[in-house]
Computed example of a mutant assay.
Amino acid sequence: MTAAGINELVSTRVFDVPRELVYRAWTSPELLARWWGPRGFTNTFHEIDIKPGGEWLFTMHGPDGAEYPNRCVFVELVPPERVVLDHLSGHQFRVTAIFEDLEGRTRVTFRQLFKDTEEFEQAKPYCMEGNEQNLDRLGELLTEANI
């Protein structure tokens, strides 16, 4: 995880699976619910319409019992190359996930660009670790035989 540019965090990870499978993990509600968020968090999806302009309304349940309502809108979907969404509740930021084919393996570049510098500085300490845990959980899902 690095701070890259103004108000932006970037994580990169390589997974030993084809990028079509990574893209599916990002765009299948059943799979997305299993890995999205830092370690110890679970999700309840209230609405998810995976198309440009489609809303994703969900509650993240923290390991301490706290609940975090979230509202996102999908901006761009380019199978199997890219998913872009705007997080519009609480801290506002854009997530851009890029999936690069590495001869059957996939490099995921996870970019999180905050709208506001003050919010970025507030969120940066926990987002840096949370984004890494998010990618850890994605990797764990991708190694399961039943997906």
Results as ranks from 00 to 15, higher is better:
residue 90 G to L: 11
residue 25 A to T: 03
residue 122 Q to A: 13
residue 105 R to T: 03
residue 92 Q to E: 14
residue 88 L to M: 13
residue 44 T to P: 00
residue 32 L to C: 00
residue 35 W to M: 02
residue 111 R to A: 08
residue 34 R to S: 07
residue 22 V to Q: 04
residue 128 M to H: 04
residue 83 V to R: 10
residue 126 Y to N: 10
residue 126 Y to P: 01
residue 50 I to T: 07
residue 7 N to Y: 01
residue 105 R to M: 08
residue 138 L to F: 08
residue 56 W to H: 07
residue 44 T to M: 01
residue 63 P to F: 10
residue 74 F to L: 12
residue 17 V to Q: 06
residue 147 I to M: 13
residue 78 V to R: 13
residue 95 V to M: 15
residue 23 Y to Q: 00
residue 73 V to G: 02
residue 59 T to F: 06
residue 21 L to T: 07
residue 91 H to Q: 11
residue 132 E to G: 11
residue 28 S to D: 15
residue 147 I to V: 15
residue 121 E to G: 01
residue 131 N to P: 00
residue 36 W to D: 02
residue 65 G to N: 06
residue 68 Y to H: 13
residue 62 G to F: 01
residue 11 S to C: 14
residue 144 E to C: 14
residue 71 R to Y: 07
residue 69 P to S: 08
residue 46 H to N: 11
residue 69 P to R: 08
residue 14 V to N: 03
residue 133 Q to D: 05
residue 96 T to K: 01
residue 77 L to Q: 05
residue 139 G to V: 11
residue 144 E to D: 14
residue 101 D to P: 01
residue 118 E to P: 01
residue 129 E to H: 06
residue 26 W to K: 06
residue 131 N to I: 12
residue 136 D to I: 12
residue 10 V to G: 03
residue 67 E to L: 13
residue 30 E to S: 11
residue 5 G to W: 05
residue 136 D to Y: 05
residue 16 D to L: 07
residue 28 S to H: 04
residue 84 V to N: 04
residue 108 V to M: 06
residue 20 E to N: 10
residue 8 E to D: 01
residue 143 T to I: 14
residue 20 E to G: 07
residue 48 I to Y: 02
residue 75 V to D: 13
residue 82 R to H: 05
residue 43 N to A: 11
residue 47 E to G: 00
residue 12 T to H: 11
residue 8 E to H: 06
residue 41 F to P: 03
residue 61 H to Q: 09
residue 147 I to Q: 10
residue 26 W to Q: 08
residue 35 W to V: 00
residue 27 T to K: 00
residue 109 T to Y: 01
residue 1 M to S: 14
residue 147 I to C: 11
residue 82 R to A: 03
residue 15 F to A: 09
residue 10 V to Y: 02
residue 110 F to I: 10
residue 20 E to L: 01
residue 88 L to A: 11
residue 46 H to L: 15
residue 14 V to K: 01
residue 108 V to A: 04
residue 61 H to D: 05
residue 134 N to M: 12
residue 4 A to C: 09
residue 105 R to N: 04
residue 94 R to V: 15
residue 51 K to I: 01
residue 83 V to L: 09
residue 122 Q to T: 10
residue 80 P to Y: 08
residue 80 P to C: 10
residue 105 R to A: 13
residue 66 A to H: 12
residue 126 Y to W: 07
residue 90 G to N: 08
residue 92 Q to F: 00
residue 139 G to R: 10
residue 77 L to M: 08
residue 94 R to G: 09
residue 18 P to D: 05
residue 24 R to E: 09
residue 87 H to A: 12
residue 135 L to R: 09
